[in-house]
Design a binder for these strands. Structure first.
Lengths: 368, 368
DNA sequence: TTGACTTCCGAAATCGGTTTTGTGAAACTT
DNA sequence: AAGTTTCACAAAACCGATTTCGGAAGTCAA
């Protein structure tokens, strides 16, 4: 693997002009103690020879990489998170303006993730990390803290007080979701969520409860259902909730993926989404628009999030106090067509579903 | 931006053991001329001190970065390509096994892309490039060729003879698509494609024509419609084709995004997809499964493609002849439910559509 | 005993930059 | 006129590794 690129070095430039290489370096780094004529001669030579400093050599001396890192979890094999590609896009755009680059690695297990993190830190390939999808007790953050390595998180943790982060106000969003659904006339509102070790999953569940409490509606534990964060999980959760003796007429879902699965269940059993059952998601995925009916959801601009997170990390690297680099933003409800006033009471819905379940699936849609 | 990480260097290890640093380096690089006892003492110290060599210093000396680059186009602002995130995942997995990393940058215009490419080359931040979404005459490939810089392409170009690439046999796939649709009983088959400067767009169009020719069906230029590579483009194309005096009863689309738009148009005007109109996409996006009806499409595993492309690039870097690193694979048709025998002739379909267009949109689905 | 090989490892060169230190000449003091 | 500054740049040290070169000690043959 020898990859000699015979490119022009600072020595070539220095020789060409007849000065010391230090002088060339000073010109390129805008020192002021170089005379105008010399500066011009050097600049001219640099242009002629097409010289560009080696990032490597510069970084070695400076002890900096001009590169940020992100380790993305790729778990369960199936399909990468559509959110992430937009997120990365946002990061890359922000970094581009500053001449920084982004090193992307994937990790297929928690252990592998920490391992990768440590390798990148120890070999100093990056200056700082972006941590996505925080967990309530996040081992990555523990690791970075321990190494005293700069990072920023997209999402908080149990105790987010001492690091930089950017997050959506999940609690407020889900409380609003509940209020919105309630105002449409629904009495029984179900929640489809995910394992509570993911921080956003916990907060969204809390927001759901908060919303009920604000309205003075008593919380029925049966109406909360946690499943895998996937279409399949959403399908199963919808099945579980809608088979209840007194099913909810509305399903508030922690993510669009879950909501999509829930919609699929409804479709399969001939329940009209938006009237028989209201389904609301969260993420604002473009996909949602193409659903039938188009999915009502909370939007967060992944791209904007990426940009903001990147800029925060740069601020940390510039020495700003991480504690001062925390931001919480509101999600906004995008009403499309999957929500609406309930067409029937929980009891009649229950009867309908029981019929359908017994007589087997409804329409032509192929199985899951 | 001073980021001094006081980590342990090879000198620390050498001092700790009482040997020269060159000796430590030789041990770590598996030279054979170090006595067993010394080797063990050094290995022990390395472990104790938690030493990891600085990627930077090593790279400087070796003239290699152990990093591959990919510049992804992010054009039109809206939504990153879902294909890409899986593709990157595949690359990252392959690289992980070899201890290489992936540098990701985005480019928002062709000019910016070349600029970024040149910067990364000149500053030697990466050892080679992965080029995605090749154009028939690709300026990136011209640039890389000119610099004599190692790269691999996902997709071919007009003349792909002298570089490494991995591609899908688009011509064969689309010819097969036409045959499949024809065998269902369709006579008039439309094609929805994109600007022909993208290589795959050209090839898929050619495959469509090839398929018709193979069947002895005369090619009607009116049945080809090229639009933006997006849902909107697909919608417009479907509108244009289905408004024809003798409309096609099937639409073969160059990508899933286009197909999704086409399905949306059908839905809006109450045309039953899978019987009134057959729609077939290409990409095998997971989204397609959630469509109503689930989209019949050609699959390509983006993740696998990423892995194969990465391995090819590594072979190039290892000195293998790029010409020997070209691979063409077949796409496979995934039948879901958006294709079927036509429910009516082009003429009666035309009448139906004309009625619907005059009497305004059909069902409850909100506008695009 | 001596010359010729090995074996094992220290010393130094090197990669390509940045930064510190040093220096001759001009300019400015007093 | 002698001493002090300033200017503009050369020279050298340094970042942290890898790799080349060479030398001391030990081994072996003659």
């Amino acid at each position: 693997m020898s990859r000699a690129r015979g490119s022009v070095t600072i020595d070539d430039v220095a020789r060409h002009v007849g000065v010391a290489k230090g002088t060339v370096s000073r010109v390129l780094n805008n020192y002021t103690d170089i005379s105008e004529p010399t500066r011009n001669r050097i600049l001219k030579a640099v242009k002629e020879l097409g010289y560009q400093p080696s990032a490597n050599a510069r970084n070695l001396k400076r002890g900096r990489q001009d590169t940020l890192g992100i380790v993305i979890p790729v778990g369960h094999g199936s399909g990468a998170d559509p959110f992430l590609s937009e997120f990365i896009d946002g990061i890359a755009r922000a970094l581009d303006e500053l001449g920084l680059d982004l090193l992307v690695t994937t990790a297929h297990s928690p252990g592998h993730m920490i391992e990768t993190l440590q390798r990148l830190i120890a070999r100093r390939k990056v200056d700082g990390f972006i941590v996505t999808r925080t967990e309530v007790d996040d081992p990555r953050i523990a690791c970075l803290r321990e190494h005293n390595f700069p990072f920023v998180a997209h999402g908080r943790t149990r105790d987010p007080s001492d690091f930089a982060w950017f997050d959506i106000d999940n609690v407020a969003a889900f409380a609003e979701g509940v209020r919105h659904i309630y105002s449409l006339g629904h009495e029984r509102i179900g929640f489809i969520g995910a394992k509570l070790d993911l921080n956003f999953a916990l907060q969204r569940r809390d927001g759901y409860r908060q919303g009920l409490e604000d309205l003075g509606v008593t919380h029925d534990p049966d109406l909360e259902c946690l499943r895998d964060l996937s279409g399949k999980g959403g399908f199963e959760a919808a099945e579980a909730l809608l088979s209840l003796p007194r099913p909810p007429t509305a399903l508030l879902c922690a993510t669009d993926a879950l909501a999509i699965g829930a919609v699929q269940f409804c479709r399969k059993f001939g329940l009209k989404v938006g009237s028989d059952v209201t389904v609301i998601g969260y993420d604002g995925l473009p996909v949602g628009e193409y659903l039938d009916p188009p999915l009502t959801t909370f939007s967060q601009s992944a791209q904007e999030a990426g940009g903001r997170v990147a800029r925060k990390l740069i601020d940390v690297l510039d020495g700003k106090d991480p504690k001062s680099l925390q931001a919480l933003v509101k999600a906004v409800l995008i009403r499309r067509s999957s929500d609406g006033a309930p067409s029937m009471t929980p009891d009649s819905l229950s009867k309908l579903i029981r019929d359908r379940l017994n007589n087997q699936p409804h329409s032509g849609t192929k199985g899951e």
